[in-house]
Amino acid sequence: MNEISRPTPEPIKFVAKNMRLDLRLIAEMIEPGSRVLDIGSGDGSLIETLFRTKGCDARGIEIDMAEVTRSVAHGLPVMHGDADHDLAEYPDGAFDFVVLSRTLQAVERPREVLRQMLRIGTRAIVSFPNFGHWLVRWQLLSTGRMPMTSVWSRAWYETPNIHPCTIRDFMALCEQDGYVIELWLAVDEAGQRSPWRRSPGLANVFGEQALFRLRKA
């Protein structure tokens, strides 16, 4: 009871034009007919797309009860819950893909969440906003204040994004915990894949969002 009555942090929401692209890119990474768990399923558009266009058994977990009710009332299998507390219950290998989009920076224990994702799923798909983006770096350097951008738009004292990381940070964690990066890409503000996507160093400066597909080694 306590954990649901907690004030629910609002993770960063990308602007609408990028959101669809973000979900489309994720859907492209998922094979037809897969068992999929979408953590933070929001309005359920990803699981609906996966069910309708790819015949997937796609389910969602969502922290916002109003979104859960809307999704279930729309015929989608979504349960109220969150990444930090509800993954531990699933058996090993229950899913082919476990998706966590735009939420990693807002969970309490990102490393544990990743570990659980790759325990209950064969593959994990993770997207997050890149804190290494040049604008973020420039604002901190030039003003000495916490950056405020279109993506990082909440003040430090009230942001739900308590674990920001850069693309390089994330890659280092994957290496440390023995996860294989099967695919990755970074996109700029307009949601375009860019020529620097093969260079982690450049992506870490110019990529506004990052998307990874992982599996265990």
Partner: peptide, 26 residues
């Protein structure tokens, strides 16, 4: 029959890898 009982049920269903929707109506 408080929500925590339903949540315990949902978790057990998750352990059984069942397809579960779960809502608490305010």
């Amino acid at each position: 029959f408080p929500t925590r009982e339903s949540r315990a049920l949902v978790r057990a269903l998750n352990r059984a890898a069942a397809n579960v929707s779960f809502v608490e109506i305010p």
